[in-house]
Computed example of a mutant assay.
Amino acid sequence: MKNGIAFISGEAFFPNGGHKNTLRLNYTNINEEKIREGIKILSNVIKANMLPNN
C-alpha cells in the first residue's frame, strides 16, 4: 500500500487451497493508463524485493 497499489496473494482466491506463488490482478474498473501505471509500480516493487542489494 505504501506505493499506491494493493496486493493480495492469489492463493486466497482458490477455495480448495493450493496455487502457491500466484497473484491476482483486478483491472476491470480502471482505464488503460492507470493499468499501465500500476503494472510499472508493481514491477518496481517486485524487483526491489527480489534482487539482492548491490
Rank of each mutant, 00 (worst) to 15 (best):
E37H: 11
I41D: 07
L23Y: 12
T28H: 13
I5K: 01
L25S: 02
M50S: 08
V45Y: 00
K47S: 13
N16G: 06
E33G: 03
G38S: 11
I35Q: 07
N53V: 15
L42S: 10
L42D: 04
N3R: 00
P52G: 09
N3K: 07
P15A: 00
I39F: 12
A6W: 03
K20G: 03
N29G: 06
N26G: 15
N31T: 00
P15Q: 06
I39Y: 05
G18S: 05
R24W: 05
R24M: 10
K47F: 09
F7N: 06
F7G: 02
K2E: 15
E32C: 05
K2D: 13
E11T: 15
N54H: 05
N29F: 12
N21T: 01
S9R: 10
L25A: 07
H19T: 04
K34F: 04
T22V: 09
P52K: 07
S43I: 03
A12M: 13
I35M: 11
F7I: 15
M1A: 14
F13P: 00
H19M: 14
T28I: 03
M50P: 00
I35R: 08
G17E: 12
I46F: 03
G38F: 03
N3M: 02
K40G: 10
L42Q: 08
G18P: 07
R24Y: 07
R24K: 13
M1F: 14
I46W: 00
N49S: 11
E32Q: 10
N26T: 13
S43V: 04
F14G: 04
P52R: 08
G18A: 04
N29D: 11
L23T: 13
V45K: 00
I41E: 07
K40S: 15
G4T: 07
S9K: 10
I39T: 07
N26I: 12
A48P: 00
N31A: 04
N54G: 07
N49M: 09
A48E: 08
G18E: 01
N31F: 03
L23P: 02
H19I: 01
T22N: 06
N16C: 02
L25F: 11
I35T: 11
N26K: 09
K40F: 06
E11P: 02
Y27Q: 13
T22F: 02
N21Q: 08
E11H: 14
G4A: 07
A12T: 14
